[in-house]
């Protein structure tokens, strides 16, 4: 049970920690950063570009147009990977659509500082039209946010109407990236995978437990879900001390970067 490693991303997310005796209570600020847009010359953006190239090679024989990003548990970097990958595609001149199918804990709209109004759930419930829910958020990037809280997410996600919508969008966009809930918590990701050409599996190098990652992969296999590959996030840089890596960064900053301001 393996998945190819197609991307590796360094750690760099702000965390707020509250100490309680010896127990650490960690709360994350879900403000997402799209480094590929903020700082296209940074090594971080370069890492996402490498991921995109890996995906391009995976899709040599067949078209990988609709992909979902999924992980074992919450907080591993699904949304960050999805947003940055999308930004890289958009930079390439592709028309990108993000769809937030994490109906239980929608977060995608936050990256673009918009309110979670009139989204996919509203459309599926018949409260909104297809044209209303697509929001243009950035150059080449459109977004369908989640919208109202759906009481039965699984049945909504399995609906024919959603399938039709995604099929319809295939004609209008080059790349469609779908955000979904973690696979070990709920079954939503298995259902949404039916809409996609493949799943990108995100594993955090510092927080995901080995058993959880293995279990997630076996869930994917059981459900016949195609894993395109695995992206390692929050890779802490033990590499930083190494001669080779240090020099890579120096070389990068001197020749390609923006003068070293984009250290991360």
């Amino acid at each position: 049970m393996t998945a190819n490693l197609i991307g590796k991303l360094r750690r760099g997310r702000a965390k707020v920690e509250y100490m309680k005796k010896d127990k650490k209570r960690v709360a994350q600020n879900p403000g997402y950063r799209i480094v590929s847009m903020e700082n296209p010359l940074s090594p971080a953006a370069e890492a996402f570009r490498r991921l995109k190239v890996s995906l391009d090679f995976l899709g040599v024989d067949e078209k990988l147009q609709v992909m979902q990003v999924c992980s074992a548990v919450q907080g591993e970097g699904k949304t960050t990977v999805l947003l940055n990958l999308g930004a890289i595609y958009a930079e390439d001149g592709k028309k990108v659509l993000f769809i937030d199918l994490d109906l239980r804990r929608p977060r995608l709209h936050r990256a673009f500082k918009i309110e979670n109004k009139l989204g996919i759930a509203d459309y599926l419930a018949g409260y909104a039209k297809a044209e209303e829910i697509v929001k243009h958020v950035s150059a080449n990037i459109d977004l369908i946010n989640c919208g109202i809280k759906a009481p039965y997410p699984t049945s909504v996600l399995g609906s024919q109407q959603l399938k039709n919508l995604v099929e319809d969008m295939r004609g209008r966009y080059d790349i469609i990236l779908i955000d979904c809930p973690p696979v070990l918590t709920v079954t939503d990701a298995c259902i949404t995978s039916r809409l996609t050409d493949g799943t990108i599996f995100v594993v955090s190098a510092s927080t995901t437990e080995k058993a959880a990652a293995k279990e997630a992969v076996s869930v994917f296999r059981q459900n016949n879900i195609r894993i395109l590959g695995c992206v390692m996030t929050e890779v802490s840089c033990g590499l930083r001390g190494s001669f080779y890596y240090n020099n890579t960064l120096k070389y990068y900053n001197a020749n390609y970067g923006d003068g070293g301001t984009a250290g991360n």
Partner: peptide
């Protein structure tokens, strides 16, 4: 619960 409050504070 405390966890929710902590995450709200983080925001």
């Amino acid at each position: 619960d405390l966890k929710t409050i902590a995450s709200m504070k983080a925001e």
